[in-house]
Design a protein around this nucleic acid. Structure first.
Lengths: 339, 339
DNA sequence: TCAGCTTTTGCATACGTATGCAAAAATACA
DNA sequence: TGTATTTTTGCATACGTATGCAAAAGCTGA
């Protein structure tokens, strides 16, 4: 069965270490188990022998025995969107500190559940974290059966048992509207994500409702589908309308960048004097002077932290009660809105 | 030992399926093994039973038995750099097609080997792909012992047994110089990555050597350390020198963006009329009109493909001979260089 | 020194899948 | 129909680690 790698002698195991140290295999196992009953002296002897052999524990075997892998599946639709890349980076570095690792599942399209994700369960992952993708009810059921918590970052879910972490979506819309009103804008527009995204919907609601309070109705809305080219099309439609907006709120920075580009290059508009633009996320690029984007922040680090908290809590308590955490953000005023 | 998840009955195993289908556990195993000796009729009976139970193979157990995991470790320093995010995305989607997955290791700094990486071997990964990080000799030795191929993308390595995949680095420098000369530039400069990066060094050599052929010597060089802020500092130094360059070649798009920003905003220079800028990589953002960057491409998809080819080949042949593949690129002329 | 107690150790077995081997079943051929 | 051959099956065991349990060793205090 074991098709040994050519010439590569097989990796040393606990038994090898045990033999060298003159103890039993179980002693070696205990030497690596925190809090296990083992004499300090023997442990040292064992670690010494392990070092000599270059022993590395086989995590597959450990996982099989303990039924937990220290692996967390991360489903992410689009690493090109810097916001999600950022979240991934944060998750990875925070998880590494608690000795866990990420098994990456990228899926071709936003918002759909990747059928491949079910295979994640085959890896006995400790949890499933999803961003920019939605859990399907079937997947959620499978996870529930397997006792694997699901956490969605930045997407809502009505599915029972799915935990969520998100920014202050409704407030983001409100604050954007408030700021644009305060700075004397007259003609508003919204570039939404996708129709099915609850995140986008909530931002939109906050924006529209707050404007309505000041008597502003019939705010035009276009869908950018969270993509660069989609947002460009949305911008073209909005900016070529006869009642051209002087303030555009976008459901993400990534789309706002695209809108900015179109406004400046294709319509030769001066930003912010002729049109102001606000995004949501505060990705690193937003502060680069090429964009210099006013935006409502959604801190990736805090989102990652919240997601991990949920996972840890649910796993340690063997709880299956979904949790929901809202992470605070704030309006960051930069040069894409007039003063 | 088994601390059963609360209320979650344990996931069904091959034995459960076997019982339901009225066969032996080994039959079930064979039903899932391509090319195994099993009657078509029994296989169908088994798959039916499996579906009924919602059975998913336990890949940890499989890995333990077969000594291969279908997991590939990907070490990546910085997902914020869109080039590497892109490579990761490509690797992930190409690997998924051959049923393999990525275990993600992000490390805090470029160019250093993450000590955590040795733990990757604990997961019995089938290979280790590194981008923007360098394998240390010790790590390489460990991997060799374990029979795990290492492939470095976009970094050279003199360590025996480490395979590499890279773009046409030397030629990138040459072509950039050639284009800038042809378009009548006079004062050249180079923004390098880090001193230890062979990639940066080769691009630099190509650039400097080609300029030297036209009698141009003493080209100033600053180090941007592949970071946004580092490149900004480099740009400030270069642009404030008394002999201000009118052509800057940057070792990566990411740094070129930063240089562009500084030139436009801090020095109020017109790009490309007062200064032309060329990058390397052709990340998606380079084509966004905010940057509209002329650049020598280094196609992420092709790099990923080459890396996977190497891994597959080395694993199938149990070969430990390192392989090296160069991937073609080309100069993409956009608006950041004058015509 | 010994009884009573605590700490440390090894034995045996479990985790879920893969596979060599021999037995059993199916098929082919005479 | 019976024998030879091939295909399919199950048994037994291996992969490397974790852990309940009982035995062994170490310690305490008289």
């Amino acid at each position: 069965m074991v098709s040994k790698k050519l010439g590569g002698r097989r990796a040393p195991t606990e038994s090898d270490v045990a033999k060298l140290a003159g103890v039993s295999q179980s002693a070696v196992s205990r030497a690596y188990t925190k809090g296990a009953s083992i004499a300090q002296k023997t442990r040292e002897k064992i670690l010494q022998a392990a070092k000599e052999l270059g022993y590395q524990p086989n995590l597959m075997a450990r996982s099989l025995a303990t039924n937990q892998s220290n692996i967390i599946a991360l489903a992410i639709s689009n690493l090109e969107n810097p916001f999600y890349a950022n979240v991934a980076q944060q998750l990875s570095s925070q998880l590494r500190e608690i000795g866990k690792h990420i098994l990456l599942f990228t899926s071709p399209s936003d918002d759909e559940t990747d059928p491949m994700l079910e295979r994640a369960l085959s890896y006995q992952v400790d949890a499933l974290i999803m961003t920019a993708t939605m859990a399907s009810p079937e997947l959620a059921l499978q996870c529930k059966k397997a006792g694997v918590p699901i956490v969605q970052i930045n997407r809502g879910s009505k599915i029972a048992g799915v935990s969520t972490v998100w920014g202050e979506n409704h407030r983001a819309g409100e604050v954007a509207a408030e700021h644009l009103l305060k700075t004397k804008h007259k003609r508003f527009a919204f570039v939404a994500g996708s129709k099915t995204s609850s995140t986008s919907q909530m931002r939109q609601d906050g924006f529209i409702e707050h404007l309505a309070k000041s008597g502003i109705k019939n705010v035009p809305i276009e869908y950018g589908e969270y993509s660069f080219s989609g947002a460009a099309n949305a911008a073209r439609k909005l900016l070529s309308s006869k009642n051209r907006p002087d303030a555009i709120f976008c459901a993400s920075d990534y789309m706002a960048f695209s809108v900015l580009d179109v406004a400046k290059r294709e319509f030769n508009l001066n930003v912010p004097n002729e049109v102001s633009i606000i995004g949501v996320d505060d990705v690193p690029e937003a502060s680069h002077s090429a964009y210099d984007l006013t935006t409502f922040s959604q801190p990736a680090g805090a989102l990652a932290k919240a997601a991990i908290e949920i996972v840890e809590k649910m796993n340690s308590e063997s709880s299956r009660r979904a949790m929901h955490i809202e992470v605070e953000g704030q309006l960051i005023i930069r040069g894409s809105t007039k003063a």
